[in-house]
Write a protein that binds this DNA or RNA. Structure first.
Lengths: 114, 114
DNA sequence: TTGGAATATTCGATCCTTCGCATATAGTAT
DNA sequence: ATACTATATGCGAAGGATCGAATATTCCAA
């Protein structure tokens, strides 16, 4: 396989390699949301969300639709959702080891007993 | 979903977000290979391969088995292969746009007509 | 136990990413 | 035109990733 294809894949993984961008994709799984909706649901700086959306746009993982004042985003291809679904399975399967990899877990997570 | 889980996923995507590491995972799809095998097949510096393997190990995407002098690597969970298989489908589906995203393509790639 | 082969680690230079802040653009309404 | 809301972009600082060169470790063989 040519290196250019690997770079293409690596770029897409790179685009997914940030917690905020994963959150965005997951929020968009149920349908489109405006940039403002995402900002509100994620509770982050407006510029920050917009920058992350720019990353996702630049790799064409999301598409946007302008409606008046607002810009609505949605995931371009459900394959990306499938990838995230696989990651969820992967996480469940390796929960114990995953816990070891994480620095901290918050309250909503299954307790480890330690 | 707690942020820690998103960080976990993001870390795994980050581990996959490099052409050399994608190449390693793909080479390992057919079975285990030694670090030296990978080095030879990829034609890269020994230290470089070893560093990339360290990244994959640290996220537990690969496991290793020592046999005398050598260390044999394999993909820990076939889910990761499924993820890469999905990415192949994604690439095929969006080949035209993907071409636009790539800076350059090498000879072995399907010609674009331009 | 000395040497050689296979692999891993450390170091430092360079580049890439991320963030907040400030500013710019675009659309809508008055 | 002016003002207001929604979104995007430019900038610079701080931290993270990547590479080659050098060095360390581990295992086996003589």
């Amino acid at each position: 396989m040519p290196d250019s294809l690997r770079r293409f894949k690596a770029d897409i993984f790179q685009a997914l390699a940030h917690p905020t961008r994963i959150a965005i994709i997951e929020l968009l799984e149920d349908g489109e949301l405006s940039a403002g909706d995402l900002m509100e649901k994620l509770g982050m700086e407006q510029a920050n969300i917009s920058q992350h959306l720019a990353v996702l746009r630049s790799k064409q993982l999301v598409v946007n639709r302008k409606a008046g004042n607002q810009v609505f985003y949605s995931v371009r291809d459900p394959i990306i959702n499938k990838v995230l679904a696989l990651m969820r399975r992967y996480f469940q399967k390796h929960l114990k080891e995953a816990l070891g990899l994480l620095d901290e877990m918050d309250d909503s997570t299954i307790p480890t007993g330690r």
